[in-house]
Simulated assay, not measured.
Amino acid sequence: MTNRLRLSLAQMNSTNRHAGNIEWMQDAIAQAAQEGADMLALPEASGLCNKDRADALTQVVDHADDPFIKACQEAAAKHGIWIQTGSTPVKGPDGADGARFLNHGDMINAQGEIVAGYDKIHLFDIFLDGKPATGESRRYGPGAKAVMAPTPWGDAGMAICYDLRFPQLFRDYAQAGASMLFIPSAFTIPTGRAHWEVLLRARAIENGAFVVASAQAGHHDDGRKTYGHSMVVNPWGEVLADMGPETVGITTVDLDMDEVVAARRQIPSLQNGRDYAFDAKAAKPHAAE
C-alpha cells in the first residue's frame, strides 16, 4: 500500500448533454496530470445532469455503451491517473424504454480499467416544506450492493449523495477496512446549507477515514441549482479542502494515509462497539398511573 495519495477534487456544473461533460472532464484530468495527481474524483451526475425524463431517455444507454464512462477510461489511460467517475445515469437491467435508470459510479485505474462499480442504494425521496417532492425513485431504481474499490492507497468505500445520510453503510465499509469514503454529490441548496458539512465531517470522524466528496455547483441546464462546496475531510474531521459555492474546476490535495491508522489507534471505536439487545417495550415511557 502507498501512503501518499495526491488527489484532484473536481467541482462541476454538468450539462444536459454528454459531450460538454466529456470535454470538461478531459480538460480537468489534463490539469490534474500537470499538478501531479494520482487520482481525479468527479461528482454525482458528472456524465449527464438531465431531469427531463423524455430527453434523458434519448441519451441514456447501457453501462457498456455509455460515452462518458468510455471517455473516462480513455482519459485515465492517456494520463496514467485513476478516476472516480462520481456517477452518471445508465439503463437499468432490463434496458426497456420507460424503465428506471441506475445512478452509477465507477472506479477506474491508471490503465483505464474499471476495478469497481456501484449503483446508488438510497434514493432521494424527501419532502421539504414549501418545495415539491424530489421523487428520485420515479426515475431511478436502487442499487442493492455496497462496493469497496481496491486501490494502491487502500480500499475505498463507494457511495453517492443521499447515501451520506445512512451511517451504517459507512460503518460497514470502515469495519471491512476502507480507508477512504467517496461520496460524490449534487446536493440541493437548502439541504446543503443545513447538513452537508456536518454530515461529511461526522462520517469521517465516526469511521476514522478520509471522506472525498466532489459536488455539483450552480445553475444547471435542466433548471436545478446545486450547493457546491466539494470537500475533502481527514480522519480527524478536519476539512482539508472546501471549493465554495460557485467555483468550477479542480483543487489538488495530498492525503497521508497514515492518518487513518493514527485516528483509529487513538479512538478505536471500530473495535469498541458491542452487540446489544433492544427491548422496544422497555424503551417506551410508562403510562402515568
Score class of each variant (00 low, 15 high):
3 N>K: 15
6 R>A: 02
7 L>N: 03
17 R>A: 14
18 H>P: 15
19 A>Q: 15
21 N>W: 14
25 M>Q: 13
29 I>H: 11
30 A>Q: 15
31 Q>L: 15
32 A>D: 06
33 A>P: 08
34 Q>W: 05
37 A>G: 09
40 L>K: 10
40 L>D: 11
48 L>A: 09
49 C>R: 14
51 K>W: 14
52 D>T: 07
53 R>V: 10
56 A>M: 07
60 V>C: 06
60 V>K: 05
62 D>G: 10
66 D>I: 02
67 P>L: 08
71 A>P: 04
74 E>L: 11
74 E>S: 10
76 A>P: 10
81 I>A: 10
85 T>Q: 13
89 P>H: 09
90 V>N: 10
102 L>M: 13
115 V>H: 02
116 A>D: 05
127 F>N: 08
131 K>L: 06
132 P>V: 01
138 R>P: 00
139 R>S: 03
147 V>A: 03
149 A>N: 06
149 A>W: 06
152 P>T: 08
153 W>G: 02
160 I>Y: 04
162 Y>D: 02
164 L>M: 15
166 F>A: 09
172 D>W: 11
175 Q>Y: 11
175 Q>D: 13
182 F>Y: 14
189 I>Q: 11
191 T>M: 15
195 H>R: 12
197 E>L: 13
199 L>W: 15
200 L>Q: 15
200 L>M: 15
204 A>H: 12
206 E>C: 11
209 A>K: 06
211 V>P: 07
214 S>H: 04
215 A>K: 05
216 Q>G: 08
219 H>M: 10
223 G>A: 12
225 K>W: 06
231 M>V: 04
233 V>I: 13
235 P>R: 02
238 E>I: 05
238 E>D: 14
238 E>R: 07
242 D>L: 01
243 M>K: 01
247 T>N: 02
251 T>L: 00
254 D>P: 00
264 R>Q: 04
265 R>I: 00
266 Q>H: 01
268 P>Q: 01
268 P>N: 01
271 Q>I: 00
280 A>C: 00
283 A>D: 08
283 A>N: 04
283 A>E: 05
285 P>R: 03
289 E>L: 04
289 E>G: 05
